[in-house]
Amino acid sequence: MAKIVTVTTQKGGAGKTALALLLATGEALRGERVLLVDLDQQGDASYSLVSDYDPSKTSYELLTSESVQVPAVATPVSGYLNLDLVPASLTLERVEVELAGVLDAQFILSDKLEAVKDDYDLIVIDTPPSLNVIVSNALTAADKLIIPVQADIYSFKGMATLAQRVKAIQRRSNPRLSICGIVLNRYNPRTNLSKAITEALNEVAEQFNTKVYRSTLRDATAVREAQNAKQSLFEYAAKGAKVTEDAKALLNEIEEDLKNG
């Protein structure tokens, strides 16, 4: 039965989609059956994996149409034997309005993923950088939460608000939700700023009752180049790239957390 992992943060540009792609493609290449659900209207994860898909079969339809279930909108990703994608759509921007007044709207995604949990080993949810009904759905559906944080002072803005939302979800709609940890992204260990942020981040982790992952992801053009080439980082920079070694180490840490609970 699949573990469901949501990747979210309120701050844009923190590497949320890159982390979701790393987790989904990395586990698929290791032989796991993976579903990536793209809930970000920008659709960067979808663009990075699939060149073309049916615009009427997306996560928007999954959230707004009672009759649409996951198998109807899941697209196999070429080049992977066991990776499926529920792509995003620009129409996701309308979800907030369309679900206004819908009873228990935050449970829509959870209910639909429950029906396919036996078909996958891992389900990864990429989210928009906000705290809207889409993110509430993603948090209500998840077993685990991973929070990426960019190594700059602006990434701490909104973290307290996110912590409050997570605690509210744990109290009301998803008591099983736990936070795996915080990932420091675009990190340069040689700068004094990054070192100071690392120290501050440990204090932030206490708000979430979690940890900061030991493995960080350095700032590297290979990450963006891999996305543009529609390849995983593990394939695009398979040998010798330090960022790929970072990613493998982080993936190992996350795997350990998922296995242990």
Rank of each mutant, 00 (worst) to 15 (best):
M1H: 11
T6A: 15
T6W: 04
T6N: 10
T9C: 09
K11D: 04
K11C: 01
A14F: 03
K16E: 01
A18Q: 06
L19H: 04
A20P: 05
L22M: 13
L22V: 11
T25Y: 02
A28V: 03
L29N: 00
E32A: 14
V34Y: 02
V34K: 05
V34D: 04
V34C: 01
L36H: 01
L39M: 09
L39Y: 06
Q41L: 00
Y47A: 15
S48F: 04
D52M: 04
D54C: 02
P55Q: 08
K57W: 05
E61V: 01
T64I: 07
S67Y: 02
V68C: 03
V70C: 04
V70S: 01
S78R: 13
N82E: 12
L83F: 03
D84V: 01
V86C: 00
L90Y: 11
T91P: 02
L92G: 09
E93H: 12
E96R: 14
E96I: 07
V97T: 15
L99M: 12
L99E: 10
A100I: 11
A100F: 15
A100R: 13
V102G: 06
L103C: 07
L103Y: 14
A105C: 12
I108Y: 13
I108W: 14
L109R: 12
L109T: 10
S110R: 15
S110V: 06
S110I: 11
L113S: 12
E114S: 15
A115T: 13
D118W: 10
V124H: 04
V124I: 14
I125E: 02
I125A: 07
D126P: 07
T127L: 07
S130V: 06
S130G: 09
L131H: 09
I134G: 10
S136Y: 12
N137R: 09
N137P: 10
A138V: 08
L139I: 11
A142H: 05
A142K: 02
K144G: 10
I147K: 07
P148G: 04
A151N: 07
A151P: 08
Y154G: 08
Y154W: 08
S155V: 09
G158C: 06
M159H: 06
A160K: 13
A160R: 15
Q164N: 08
V166I: 13
K167T: 12
A168K: 12
R171V: 00
S173L: 05
P175K: 01
P175F: 05
P175D: 00
R176H: 12
I179R: 00
G181H: 00
G181C: 03
I182F: 02
L184C: 06
R190E: 13
L193S: 14
S194F: 01
T198A: 15
E206A: 14
T210R: 03
T210E: 08
R224H: 11
E225Y: 03
A226S: 11
A226F: 03
K230W: 07
L233I: 12
E235G: 02
E235I: 11
K239I: 10
A241V: 03
A241L: 06
V243I: 04
D246N: 07
A247H: 03
L250D: 06
K259V: 12
